[in-house]
Amino acid sequence: MMRTLVLARNLGERLGGYARRAYPQEACGVLLGKSAGDDRIVISVHQARNLNAERPRDRYELDPGDFLAADEEARKTGLDIVGIWHTHPDHPAQPSATDRAAAWPGWSYVIVSVSCDGVGDVRSWCLSDDRFEEEAIRS
């Protein structure tokens, strides 16, 4: 059965705002929340710096200092880092080979498609047996 990521509408809209402001570069960040069985509930979303200076339009490297700060906040509030989000400017919200090569198990990977016309699809993926499986997003 497909896993579910619960992402409240206002949090999804916040991701869309980050995506539009960063366009045409990729934006990225961290999802804080909790697990409920196989599903994950997002409680807050955080933007991180994209440290990839050479190819910021089609690659991201999430600032580990920002990751650490988000992890600290999660621990203080009894939450976990349950996932990572990033944008695909002018590209579908499907994981690329680059996404797959760098992915870790146990996290939801939310991808936001964005173009000059605005935010497109928002889809979530999770690594399962070394390949990405899509998760349902519910608000």
């Binding site: 990729e26 690659r59 490297e61 580990p64």
Partner: peptide, 12 residues
């Protein structure tokens, strides 16, 4: 000590 996974990827 924190073990911090490097998080990366991108559309291409």
């Amino acid at each position: 000590i924190s073990i911090v996974p490097a998080v990366a990827g991108g559309r291409a």
